[in-house]
Design a protein around this nucleic acid. Structure first.
Lengths: 211, 211
DNA sequence: GTCTATAGTCAGATAGAC
DNA sequence: GTCTATCTGACTATAGAC
Protein backbone atom coordinates (compact mmCIF):
# COMPACT_ATOMS: atom_id res chain seq x y z
CA UNK A 1 0.00 0.00 0.00
CA UNK A 2 0.98 3.65 -0.32
CA UNK A 3 3.39 5.14 2.23
CA UNK A 4 1.97 7.15 5.15
CA UNK A 5 2.76 10.66 3.87
CA UNK A 6 3.19 13.23 6.62
CA UNK A 7 -0.06 14.70 7.88
CA UNK A 8 -1.21 18.27 7.37
CA UNK A 9 0.00 21.03 9.60
CA UNK A 10 -1.14 24.27 11.16
CA UNK A 11 -3.99 24.76 13.51
CA UNK A 12 -4.84 28.48 13.48
CA UNK A 13 -2.10 29.85 15.69
CA UNK A 14 -3.36 30.99 19.06
CA UNK A 15 -1.71 33.94 20.77
CA UNK A 16 -2.64 32.51 24.17
CA UNK A 17 -0.86 32.31 27.52
CA UNK A 18 1.51 29.40 27.73
CA UNK A 19 -0.47 26.76 29.66
CA UNK A 20 2.88 25.10 30.16
CA UNK A 21 2.16 23.33 33.42
CA UNK A 22 0.86 19.74 33.39
CA UNK A 23 -2.11 20.83 35.49
CA UNK A 24 -2.95 23.59 33.05
CA UNK A 25 -2.68 21.15 30.17
CA UNK A 26 -5.03 18.75 31.92
CA UNK A 27 -7.51 21.54 32.52
CA UNK A 28 -7.38 22.41 28.87
CA UNK A 29 -8.10 18.80 27.99
CA UNK A 30 -11.13 18.82 30.26
CA UNK A 31 -12.45 21.88 28.45
CA UNK A 32 -12.05 20.08 25.14
CA UNK A 33 -13.86 17.05 26.53
CA UNK A 34 -16.70 19.20 27.84
CA UNK A 35 -16.91 21.05 24.55
CA UNK A 36 -17.12 17.89 22.46
CA UNK A 37 -20.00 16.70 24.59
CA UNK A 38 -21.91 19.97 24.56
CA UNK A 39 -21.39 20.69 20.86
CA UNK A 40 -22.43 17.16 19.93
CA UNK A 41 -25.57 17.30 22.03
CA UNK A 42 -26.85 20.78 21.25
CA UNK A 43 -25.21 21.54 17.94
CA UNK A 44 -22.37 24.00 17.62
CA UNK A 45 -24.46 27.09 16.92
CA UNK A 46 -27.01 26.33 19.63
CA UNK A 47 -24.46 25.61 22.31
CA UNK A 48 -23.19 28.62 24.20
CA UNK A 49 -19.77 29.14 25.70
CA UNK A 50 -21.58 29.23 29.03
CA UNK A 51 -22.86 25.70 28.37
CA UNK A 52 -19.31 24.54 27.75
CA UNK A 53 -18.02 26.31 30.84
CA UNK A 54 -20.75 24.75 32.99
CA UNK A 55 -19.87 21.30 31.73
CA UNK A 56 -16.19 21.95 32.49
CA UNK A 57 -17.04 23.35 35.93
CA UNK A 58 -15.79 26.83 35.34
CA UNK A 59 -17.22 30.18 34.30
CA UNK A 60 -17.42 31.32 30.72
CA UNK A 61 -14.82 34.02 31.16
CA UNK A 62 -12.26 31.46 32.24
CA UNK A 63 -12.51 29.62 28.94
CA UNK A 64 -10.81 32.53 27.30
CA UNK A 65 -7.69 31.91 29.28
CA UNK A 66 -7.27 28.70 27.26
CA UNK A 67 -8.88 29.55 23.95
CA UNK A 68 -9.31 32.66 21.86
CA UNK A 69 -12.85 31.93 20.77
CA UNK A 70 -15.67 29.42 20.62
CA UNK A 71 -14.51 28.55 17.12
CA UNK A 72 -10.99 27.84 18.33
CA UNK A 73 -12.38 25.29 20.78
CA UNK A 74 -14.31 23.29 18.22
CA UNK A 75 -11.35 23.49 15.85
CA UNK A 76 -9.03 21.98 18.45
CA UNK A 77 -11.53 19.24 19.29
CA UNK A 78 -11.80 18.14 15.69
CA UNK A 79 -8.16 18.54 14.74
CA UNK A 80 -7.17 16.34 17.68
CA UNK A 81 -9.68 13.68 16.68
CA UNK A 82 -8.76 13.72 13.01
CA UNK A 83 -5.08 13.49 13.86
CA UNK A 84 -5.69 10.29 15.80
CA UNK A 85 -7.92 8.66 13.22
CA UNK A 86 -5.52 9.47 10.40
CA UNK A 87 -2.68 7.73 12.21
CA UNK A 88 -4.91 4.73 12.86
CA UNK A 89 -5.94 4.49 9.22
CA UNK A 90 -2.32 4.70 8.13
CA UNK A 91 -1.29 1.81 10.32
CA UNK A 92 -4.25 -0.28 9.18
CA UNK A 93 -3.22 0.19 5.57
CA UNK A 94 0.43 -0.46 6.33
CA UNK A 95 -0.38 -3.80 7.92
CA UNK A 96 -2.83 -5.03 5.30
CA UNK A 97 -1.73 -7.71 2.85
CA UNK A 98 -4.00 -6.66 -0.03
CA UNK A 99 -6.67 -4.09 -0.98
CA UNK A 100 -9.61 -6.22 0.21
CA UNK A 101 -8.01 -6.66 3.60
CA UNK A 102 -7.12 -2.97 3.72
CA UNK A 103 -10.64 -1.81 2.90
CA UNK A 104 -12.19 -4.21 5.39
CA UNK A 105 -9.71 -2.99 7.97
CA UNK A 106 -10.49 0.65 7.25
CA UNK A 107 -14.20 0.00 7.64
CA UNK A 108 -13.70 -1.81 10.91
CA UNK A 109 -11.44 0.96 12.17
CA UNK A 110 -13.96 3.63 11.12
CA UNK A 111 -16.81 1.85 12.87
CA UNK A 112 -14.88 1.38 16.10
CA UNK A 113 -13.82 5.01 16.14
CA UNK A 114 -17.36 6.07 15.38
CA UNK A 115 -18.53 4.36 18.53
CA UNK A 116 -15.61 5.46 20.65
CA UNK A 117 -15.52 9.08 19.47
CA UNK A 118 -19.21 9.55 18.97
CA UNK A 119 -19.21 13.24 19.90
CA UNK A 120 -16.49 14.28 17.52
CA UNK A 121 -18.06 12.38 14.64
CA UNK A 122 -21.45 13.90 15.39
CA UNK A 123 -19.99 17.40 15.32
CA UNK A 124 -18.27 16.71 12.01
CA UNK A 125 -21.54 15.43 10.56
CA UNK A 126 -24.01 17.91 12.04
CA UNK A 127 -21.97 21.08 12.01
CA UNK A 128 -19.93 20.64 8.89
CA UNK A 129 -21.27 23.94 7.56
CA UNK A 130 -19.72 25.71 10.53
CA UNK A 131 -16.38 23.91 10.72
CA UNK A 132 -15.57 23.78 7.03
CA UNK A 133 -14.10 27.26 7.33
CA UNK A 134 -11.04 25.81 9.07
CA UNK A 135 -8.33 24.67 6.66
CA UNK A 136 -6.86 22.63 9.51
CA UNK A 137 -10.02 20.51 9.51
CA UNK A 138 -10.68 20.40 5.79
CA UNK A 139 -7.07 19.41 5.08
CA UNK A 140 -7.26 16.52 7.51
CA UNK A 141 -10.57 15.35 6.05
CA UNK A 142 -8.90 15.33 2.65
CA UNK A 143 -6.07 13.28 4.08
CA UNK A 144 -8.61 10.71 5.27
CA UNK A 145 -10.20 10.67 1.85
CA UNK A 146 -6.80 10.18 0.22
CA UNK A 147 -5.96 7.18 2.38
CA UNK A 148 -9.23 5.44 1.59
CA UNK A 149 -9.17 6.28 -2.09
CA UNK A 150 -5.64 4.98 -2.54
CA UNK A 151 -6.80 1.63 -1.19
CA UNK A 152 -9.86 1.57 -3.42
CA UNK A 153 -7.86 2.58 -6.47
CA UNK A 154 -5.28 -0.13 -5.75
CA UNK A 155 -8.10 -2.67 -5.57
CA UNK A 156 -9.45 -1.50 -8.91
CA UNK A 157 -6.03 -1.53 -10.52
CA UNK A 158 -5.39 -5.08 -9.39
CA UNK A 159 -8.80 -6.20 -10.62
CA UNK A 160 -10.36 -7.28 -7.33
CA UNK A 161 -12.66 -4.24 -7.11
CA UNK A 162 -15.13 -3.26 -9.80
CA UNK A 163 -13.42 -0.78 -12.05
CA UNK A 164 -16.42 0.84 -13.73
CA UNK A 165 -17.01 3.35 -10.93
CA UNK A 166 -14.67 6.10 -9.85
CA UNK A 167 -12.76 5.50 -6.62
CA UNK A 168 -14.21 8.70 -5.26
CA UNK A 169 -17.79 7.56 -5.79
CA UNK A 170 -17.11 4.24 -4.14
CA UNK A 171 -15.40 5.97 -1.23
CA UNK A 172 -18.27 8.39 -0.71
CA UNK A 173 -20.90 5.68 -0.92
CA UNK A 174 -19.16 3.35 1.50
CA UNK A 175 -18.25 6.14 3.90
CA UNK A 176 -21.80 7.48 3.77
CA UNK A 177 -23.18 4.15 4.84
CA UNK A 178 -20.58 3.77 7.55
CA UNK A 179 -21.20 7.24 8.96
CA UNK A 180 -24.93 6.65 9.04
CA UNK A 181 -24.31 4.00 11.68
CA UNK A 182 -23.98 6.72 14.27
CA UNK A 183 -27.71 7.42 13.99
CA UNK A 184 -28.88 3.98 15.01
CA UNK A 185 -26.14 1.95 16.64
CA UNK A 186 -26.39 1.67 20.41
CA UNK A 187 -23.21 0.26 22.00
CA UNK A 188 -25.30 -0.83 24.97
CA UNK A 189 -27.83 -2.59 22.72
CA UNK A 190 -28.07 -6.19 21.62
CA UNK A 191 -25.87 -5.85 18.54
CA UNK A 192 -22.16 -5.98 19.41
CA UNK A 193 -19.53 -3.92 17.64
CA UNK A 194 -18.10 -7.04 16.06
CA UNK A 195 -21.48 -7.97 14.68
CA UNK A 196 -21.89 -4.42 13.44
CA UNK A 197 -18.62 -4.66 11.55
CA UNK A 198 -19.61 -8.01 10.08
CA UNK A 199 -22.93 -6.64 8.90
CA UNK A 200 -21.62 -3.48 7.30
CA UNK A 201 -18.77 -5.32 5.67
CA UNK A 202 -21.10 -7.86 4.11
CA UNK A 203 -23.62 -5.28 2.98
CA UNK A 204 -21.06 -2.99 1.40
CA UNK A 205 -18.08 -5.03 0.27
CA UNK A 206 -20.13 -7.38 -1.84
CA UNK A 207 -21.06 -4.54 -4.17
CA UNK A 208 -17.52 -3.24 -4.37
CA UNK A 209 -15.83 -6.51 -5.21
CA UNK A 210 -15.93 -8.21 -8.58
CA UNK A 211 -18.31 -11.21 -8.29
CA UNK B 1 -47.08 -4.05 -1.13
CA UNK B 2 -48.58 -2.24 1.85
CA UNK B 3 -51.39 0.27 1.36
CA UNK B 4 -50.55 3.99 1.42
CA UNK B 5 -51.81 4.85 4.93
CA UNK B 6 -52.79 8.47 5.38
CA UNK B 7 -49.93 10.82 6.08
CA UNK B 8 -49.34 12.70 9.33
CA UNK B 9 -51.12 15.91 10.07
CA UNK B 10 -50.64 19.24 11.82
CA UNK B 11 -48.10 21.83 11.04
CA UNK B 12 -47.84 24.13 14.09
CA UNK B 13 -50.91 26.28 13.64
CA UNK B 14 -50.10 29.80 12.59
CA UNK B 15 -52.30 32.64 13.76
CA UNK B 16 -51.36 34.65 10.69
CA UNK B 17 -53.26 36.96 8.40
CA UNK B 18 -55.13 35.10 5.71
CA UNK B 19 -52.91 35.45 2.63
CA UNK B 20 -55.95 34.37 0.69
CA UNK B 21 -55.17 36.04 -2.61
CA UNK B 22 -53.30 34.12 -5.32
CA UNK B 23 -50.69 36.88 -5.41
CA UNK B 24 -50.16 36.63 -1.65
CA UNK B 25 -49.85 32.89 -1.92
CA UNK B 26 -47.24 33.24 -4.65
CA UNK B 27 -45.29 35.72 -2.54
CA UNK B 28 -45.33 33.26 0.33
CA UNK B 29 -44.00 30.56 -1.96
CA UNK B 30 -41.18 32.84 -3.01
CA UNK B 31 -40.26 33.36 0.63
CA UNK B 32 -40.16 29.60 1.13
CA UNK B 33 -37.96 29.22 -1.93
CA UNK B 34 -35.59 31.93 -0.74
CA UNK B 35 -35.49 30.41 2.73
CA UNK B 36 -34.63 26.93 1.48
CA UNK B 37 -31.75 28.37 -0.47
CA UNK B 38 -30.40 30.53 2.33
CA UNK B 39 -30.79 27.92 5.06
CA UNK B 40 -29.12 25.26 2.91
CA UNK B 41 -26.19 27.49 2.07
CA UNK B 42 -25.45 29.07 5.43
CA UNK B 43 -26.98 26.62 7.86
CA UNK B 44 -30.18 27.39 9.74
CA UNK B 45 -28.57 28.93 12.82
CA UNK B 46 -26.11 31.01 10.85
CA UNK B 47 -28.66 32.36 8.42
CA UNK B 48 -30.52 35.46 9.56
CA UNK B 49 -34.05 36.46 8.70
CA UNK B 50 -32.47 39.43 6.95
CA UNK B 51 -30.61 37.02 4.67
CA UNK B 52 -33.89 35.34 3.80
CA UNK B 53 -35.62 38.65 3.25
CA UNK B 54 -32.81 39.87 1.00
CA UNK B 55 -33.05 36.74 -1.09
CA UNK B 56 -36.82 37.20 -1.36
CA UNK B 57 -36.40 40.88 -2.23
CA UNK B 58 -38.18 42.26 0.77
CA UNK B 59 -37.25 43.60 4.19
CA UNK B 60 -37.03 41.40 7.24
CA UNK B 61 -40.05 42.94 8.91
CA UNK B 62 -42.23 41.96 5.98
CA UNK B 63 -41.49 38.27 6.47
CA UNK B 64 -43.54 38.38 9.63
CA UNK B 65 -46.63 39.16 7.65
CA UNK B 66 -46.40 35.63 6.26
CA UNK B 67 -44.76 33.69 9.06
CA UNK B 68 -44.71 33.87 12.84
CA UNK B 69 -41.04 33.10 13.23
CA UNK B 70 -37.85 31.94 11.60
CA UNK B 71 -38.63 28.46 12.89
CA UNK B 72 -42.06 28.50 11.27
CA UNK B 73 -40.41 29.18 7.91
CA UNK B 74 -38.03 26.25 8.02
CA UNK B 75 -40.82 24.03 9.31
CA UNK B 76 -43.00 24.90 6.34
CA UNK B 77 -40.15 24.35 3.90
CA UNK B 78 -39.47 20.86 5.19
CA UNK B 79 -43.05 19.78 5.74
CA UNK B 80 -43.86 20.71 2.14
CA UNK B 81 -40.88 18.74 0.85
CA UNK B 82 -41.54 15.68 2.98
CA UNK B 83 -45.19 15.67 1.96
CA UNK B 84 -44.20 15.46 -1.69
CA UNK B 85 -41.55 12.79 -1.27
CA UNK B 86 -43.86 10.62 0.84
CA UNK B 87 -46.49 10.64 -1.88
CA UNK B 88 -43.85 9.77 -4.45
CA UNK B 89 -42.55 6.86 -2.38
CA UNK B 90 -46.06 5.56 -1.90
CA UNK B 91 -46.76 5.48 -5.60
CA UNK B 92 -43.42 3.81 -6.32
CA UNK B 93 -44.26 1.03 -3.90
CA UNK B 94 -47.80 0.71 -5.18
CA UNK B 95 -46.58 0.16 -8.73
CA UNK B 96 -43.78 -2.28 -7.93
CA UNK B 97 -44.26 -5.96 -8.71
CA UNK B 98 -41.99 -7.31 -5.97
CA UNK B 99 -39.72 -6.15 -3.13
CA UNK B 100 -36.57 -5.98 -5.25
CA UNK B 101 -38.31 -3.78 -7.76
CA UNK B 102 -39.80 -1.70 -4.96
CA UNK B 103 -36.45 -1.14 -3.23
CA UNK B 104 -34.72 -0.29 -6.51
CA UNK B 105 -37.55 2.11 -7.27
CA UNK B 106 -37.30 3.75 -3.87
CA UNK B 107 -33.58 4.26 -4.28
CA UNK B 108 -34.02 5.75 -7.72
CA UNK B 109 -36.77 8.03 -6.46
CA UNK B 110 -34.65 9.11 -3.48
CA UNK B 111 -31.67 9.92 -5.68
CA UNK B 112 -33.72 11.96 -8.14
CA UNK B 113 -35.37 13.92 -5.36
CA UNK B 114 -31.99 14.47 -3.74
CA UNK B 115 -30.78 16.17 -6.86
CA UNK B 116 -33.98 18.07 -7.52
CA UNK B 117 -34.58 19.20 -3.95
CA UNK B 118 -30.99 19.64 -2.93
CA UNK B 119 -31.65 22.51 -0.54
CA UNK B 120 -34.34 20.79 1.46
CA UNK B 121 -32.30 17.62 1.82
CA UNK B 122 -29.25 19.62 2.89
CA UNK B 123 -31.26 21.36 5.59
CA UNK B 124 -32.62 18.06 6.85
CA UNK B 125 -29.10 16.64 7.00
CA UNK B 126 -27.18 19.62 8.34
CA UNK B 127 -29.70 21.13 10.69
CA UNK B 128 -31.46 18.07 12.00
CA UNK B 129 -30.61 19.12 15.56
CA UNK B 130 -32.59 22.29 15.05
CA UNK B 131 -35.60 20.92 13.20
CA UNK B 132 -36.14 17.76 15.21
CA UNK B 133 -38.19 19.80 17.68
CA UNK B 134 -41.06 19.88 15.19
CA UNK B 135 -43.38 16.87 15.45
CA UNK B 136 -44.68 17.75 11.98
CA UNK B 137 -41.21 17.01 10.60
CA UNK B 138 -40.28 14.07 12.80
CA UNK B 139 -43.61 12.36 12.09
CA UNK B 140 -43.11 12.66 8.36
CA UNK B 141 -39.56 11.33 8.60
CA UNK B 142 -40.94 8.33 10.45
CA UNK B 143 -43.49 7.84 7.71
CA UNK B 144 -40.65 7.71 5.17
CA UNK B 145 -38.83 5.17 7.31
CA UNK B 146 -41.97 3.07 7.60
CA UNK B 147 -42.47 2.93 3.84
CA UNK B 148 -38.89 1.77 3.21
CA UNK B 149 -38.82 -0.70 6.06
CA UNK B 150 -42.07 -2.34 4.98
CA UNK B 151 -40.48 -3.02 1.61
CA UNK B 152 -37.30 -4.38 3.13
CA UNK B 153 -39.20 -6.54 5.59
CA UNK B 154 -41.37 -7.92 2.78
CA UNK B 155 -38.22 -8.83 0.88
CA UNK B 156 -36.83 -10.61 3.89
CA UNK B 157 -40.07 -12.45 4.55
CA UNK B 158 -40.23 -13.67 0.98
CA UNK B 159 -36.61 -14.81 1.09
CA UNK B 160 -35.15 -12.56 -1.58
CA UNK B 161 -33.37 -10.29 0.91
CA UNK B 162 -30.88 -11.51 3.50
CA UNK B 163 -32.78 -12.15 6.69
CA UNK B 164 -29.96 -12.10 9.21
CA UNK B 165 -29.97 -8.30 9.57
CA UNK B 166 -32.79 -6.22 10.97
CA UNK B 167 -34.81 -4.25 8.44
CA UNK B 168 -33.96 -1.10 10.32
CA UNK B 169 -30.22 -1.65 10.01
CA UNK B 170 -30.52 -2.31 6.31
CA UNK B 171 -32.69 0.76 5.86
CA UNK B 172 -30.26 3.00 7.73
CA UNK B 173 -27.24 1.67 5.88
CA UNK B 174 -28.78 2.00 2.45
CA UNK B 175 -30.29 5.39 3.19
CA UNK B 176 -27.00 6.61 4.64
CA UNK B 177 -25.19 5.77 1.44
CA UNK B 178 -27.92 7.34 -0.67
CA UNK B 179 -27.96 10.57 1.33
CA UNK B 180 -24.19 10.85 1.15
CA UNK B 181 -24.58 11.36 -2.57
CA UNK B 182 -25.54 14.96 -1.96
CA UNK B 183 -21.96 15.71 -0.89
CA UNK B 184 -20.33 14.73 -4.14
CA UNK B 185 -22.79 14.45 -6.99
CA UNK B 186 -22.75 17.33 -9.43
CA UNK B 187 -25.76 17.32 -11.78
CA UNK B 188 -23.73 19.40 -14.23
CA UNK B 189 -20.81 16.96 -14.08
CA UNK B 190 -19.92 14.05 -16.30
CA UNK B 191 -21.94 11.43 -14.42
CA UNK B 192 -25.62 11.49 -15.36
CA UNK B 193 -28.41 10.86 -12.89
CA UNK B 194 -29.25 7.58 -14.58
CA UNK B 195 -25.65 6.43 -14.21
CA UNK B 196 -25.72 7.53 -10.60
CA UNK B 197 -28.78 5.40 -9.97
CA UNK B 198 -27.19 2.43 -11.71
CA UNK B 199 -24.04 2.74 -9.62
CA UNK B 200 -25.72 3.10 -6.25
CA UNK B 201 -28.12 0.30 -7.00
CA UNK B 202 -25.34 -2.09 -7.93
CA UNK B 203 -23.15 -1.15 -4.98
CA UNK B 204 -25.90 -1.47 -2.41
CA UNK B 205 -28.45 -3.97 -3.62
CA UNK B 206 -25.90 -6.75 -4.11
CA UNK B 207 -25.25 -6.85 -0.39
CA UNK B 208 -28.92 -6.78 0.50
CA UNK B 209 -30.02 -9.58 -1.78
CA UNK B 210 -29.43 -13.25 -1.15
CA UNK B 211 -26.63 -14.39 -3.53
C1' DG C 1 -48.77 44.23 1.95
C1' DT C 2 -44.45 46.48 2.66
C1' DC C 3 -41.88 49.75 4.79
C1' DT C 4 -39.07 52.29 8.87
C1' DA C 5 -37.60 52.22 13.26
C1' DT C 6 -36.73 50.16 17.37
C1' DA C 7 -37.61 47.30 21.42
C1' DG C 8 -35.92 43.38 23.72
C1' DT C 9 -32.86 39.66 24.24
C1' DC C 10 -28.92 37.06 24.28
C1' DA C 11 -24.38 35.41 23.34
C1' DG C 12 -19.32 36.10 22.64
C1' DA C 13 -15.66 38.38 24.39
C1' DT C 14 -12.87 41.52 27.59
C1' DA C 15 -11.00 44.02 31.83
C1' DG C 16 -9.38 43.79 36.00
C1' DA C 17 -9.84 42.18 40.95
C1' DC C 18 -8.33 38.36 43.60
C1' DG D 1 -5.76 30.58 36.77
C1' DT D 2 -10.40 31.75 37.89
C1' DC D 3 -13.77 34.90 39.08
C1' DT D 4 -17.16 39.10 38.67
C1' DA D 5 -18.94 42.37 36.02
C1' DT D 6 -19.86 44.27 31.88
C1' DC D 7 -19.47 45.74 27.09
C1' DT D 8 -20.59 45.23 22.43
C1' DG D 9 -22.70 43.63 18.62
C1' DA D 10 -26.14 41.03 16.37
C1' DC D 11 -30.39 39.16 15.69
C1' DT D 12 -35.50 38.13 16.22
C1' DA D 13 -39.64 40.16 16.46
C1' DT D 14 -42.98 44.04 16.96
C1' DA D 15 -45.40 48.62 16.33
C1' DG D 16 -47.18 51.64 13.52
C1' DA D 17 -46.79 54.79 9.32
C1' DC D 18 -47.78 54.60 4.52
Amino acid sequence: MTPPGKTTKSVSQTRRRSTGSPAGQARKESVLLAASKVFAEKGFANATVRDVADEANMLSGSLYYYFDSKEAIVEQVLVDYLGVIIREYQSVVAEAADPSEALTGLMARALRSLVRNRNEVLILQNDWSYVQVFPSIVDRQHEVERIWMDVIQAGMDSGVFRGEFSARMVYRTVMGAVQAVIRWFDPAGSVTIDELIEIETVLLLRGVQVP
